[in-house]
């Protein structure tokens, strides 16, 4: 008993603090992840579990990767994912930036309330926020009817429609992505804009700049770290999204998350699903590394 006590006093306590979460993450995160990487070079078999290691080169079978790069289905899915996520990120920025800037200009008291209102949707169920838009975009909804009226009023009579086909399209996916990921854009932007010194704006105004010039030359350049952070927080999860494209997306033009899930569950092709997952991860790692570097630079600069 005394020995254990001594060990715990001296270094046992820190070993436990490091060791337990370490062990957990190795077992339940690293190991499954390594299995996926190994699985991506396995061969699909009709057995259970449906894979074996073999092929032309012992243990390594690159067939899944070869298919991934030759079958246009995969390239298309990657392209659609990147495009949808990219467009959603741009729109989040276009709407979120002025909102974040406005939040820095209102009084302290209302600012806290408004910030809470930005965060509140983030705490409510993601699934239900997507669902809320299914109700709005459906053919018989008031929202669709209102937009249809507006459309018919603007365009020539020949183009008039009975309802706008919003659901099950890339438009719907992008719209819902902008909606669900908006807080991720506003909060880092607000954090970086709030730190700016308002006297710089005043100085620029006093020196004869017009307000939009002040924005272009003073505010915007200083908020680049916030833009990068917000952009990645939106782009990365959006590119790998599964729920939104499944519910409101076009089934004929699936995004990559859907492809991974389908390959795994309905096609029962574990090696293919794993290969797609590995390539998607590589695509995610690049923007993340850019982000980490810019973060480090920003912190070094302060």
């Amino acid at each position: 008993m005394g020995r254990v006590r001594q060990w715990f006093d001296r270094r046992g306590w820190s070993d436990v603090i490091i060791g337990l979460p370490y062990l957990w993450l190795v077992l339940f995160f690293l190991l499954p992840f390594l299995i996926v990487i190994a699985m991506s070079v396995a061969t699909k078999t009709p057995t259970a579990p449906p894979f074996s290691f073999g092929g032309d080169v012992p243990w390594i079978n690159l067939e899944s990767y070869a298919r991934l790069f030759s079958d246009p289905l995969y390239a298309r899915a990657f392209l659609i994912s990147i495009m949808n996520a990219g467009v959603a990120t741009v729109f989040c920025l276009l709407i979120g930036y002025p909102m974040a800037l406005a939040l820095t200009r209102v009084s302290r008291g209302s600012r806290n309330v408004l910030l809470m209102l930005v965060i509140l949707p983030f705490w409510t169920s993601f699934l239900l926020r997507v669902y809320a838009w299914m109700g709005l975009m459906g053919k018989s909804s008031w929202f669709n009817a209102a937009l249809t009226d507006a459309w018919n009023w603007v365009v020539p009579v020949d183009w008039a429609v009975r309802s706008l086909p919003m659901m099950h399209s890339n438009f719907a996916v992008i719209l819902v992505m902008v909606y669900t990921y908006m807080p991720f854009m506003i909060l880092p932007l607000y954090a970086s804009l709030e730190r700016l010194d308002p006297t710089l704006d005043e100085a620029a105004l006093d020196l004869g700049s017009r307000p939009w010039q002040v924005f272009r030359d003073v505010t915007l350049p200083q908020s680049v770290p916030g833009i990068v952070a917000g952009g990645l927080l939106v782009f990365i999860p959006a590119a790998g999204e599964l729920v939104i494209p499944t519910l409101v997306g076009d089934a004929a033009a699936p995004m990559i998350g859907r492809v991974i899930s389908d390959q795994f569950t309905s096609a029962r092709d574990w090696p293919m699903a794993s290969a797609v997952a590995v390539v998607l991860l590589v695509l995610m790692v690049v923007p993340t590394m850019i982000y980490n570097r810019s973060q480090a630079r920003a912190e070094g600069g302060r």
């Binding site: 690293l30 499954p32 790998g240 794993s274």
Partner: peptide, 24 residues
Amino acid sequence: LFSGMVTAPLVMPEVITGVSMLIF
């Protein structure tokens, strides 16, 4: 490795986490 394992799940697409857990 430890700090990597703490950051990685934050940016990992959920589908991949899900599939890797299921295979595991």
